[in-house]
């Protein structure tokens, strides 16, 4: 077999080699391990964004569809992370063109107009934790998006997105409760 079986010891390399030898269970484990590592990498870059899992899935589909571009015997990790980075940039590009617009003034006005007589903590518990934390920091503690992002290690855009989505969700919940 020679050089093609000279693995680096990385689990991904071993699983891919077994998978390519026809072991379908190994391929499933490979994809699971890849998903974990990509999720961790993405979380460092975009935080626990609600779209994180979507990006992870896009990465897995790309890795599967383009698996013929991984040369046998070549380490999997650089190849996999290159694809994940490409998909992340593509995700940012698409989100940059998405119809979502951040309207900080409108987001700030919601609590006064809609939620004044409501127990805000009870409402926040109905949101995903990342969105609830974002709203607590920016609307209760009074931090800016940048300060809040720095506190938990995510970018300003990711923080804005969390606040925006959280506030939109709060509006829906509050209006539904009033009805």
């Amino acid at each position: 077999m020679g050089k093609q079986t000279d693995f680096s010891g990385d689990t991904l390399d071993q699983l891919m080699a077994s998978a390519r030898a026809g072991d379908s269970a190994a391929y499933r484990r490979f994809l699971s391990e890849a998903a974990q590592r990509i999720r961790a990498m993405l979380a460092r870059k975009i935080g626990a964004d609600s779209e994180l899992e979507d990006v992870v899935q896009e990465c897995l589909i790309a890795i599967h569809a383009k698996r013929h571009t991984l040369d046998p015997g070549r380490p999997v990790a650089p190849w996999m992370y290159a694809i994940a980075n490409y998909k992340l940039i593509d995700h940012w590009r698409r989100r940059g063109r998405s119809p979502i617009e951040f309207d900080d003034a409108a987001d700030m006005a919601v609590a006064a107009d809609t939620l004044a007589s409501t127990d805000i903590e009870t409402l926040l518990e109905k949101l995903p934790r990342a969105q609830a934390d974002a709203i607590r920091m920016t609307h209760i503690e009074g931090l800016s998006n940048r300060e809040a992002g720095e506190r938990i290690g995510v970018g300003v855009s990711a923080m804005k997105l969390r606040v925006h989505r959280g506030m939109a969700q709060l509006k829906k919940i509050a209006e539904k409760d009033r009805i």
Partner: peptide
């Protein structure tokens, strides 16, 4: 089982053998 696990199951069914005649 979440949607990512379902996706992994679907993809794993195809196997990992490189597509033939890549070059």
């Amino acid at each position: 089982m979440n949607s990512t696990d379902s996706l992994i199951d679907q993809l794993a069914q195809d196997g990992a053998a490189p597509r033939p005649a890549s070059l």
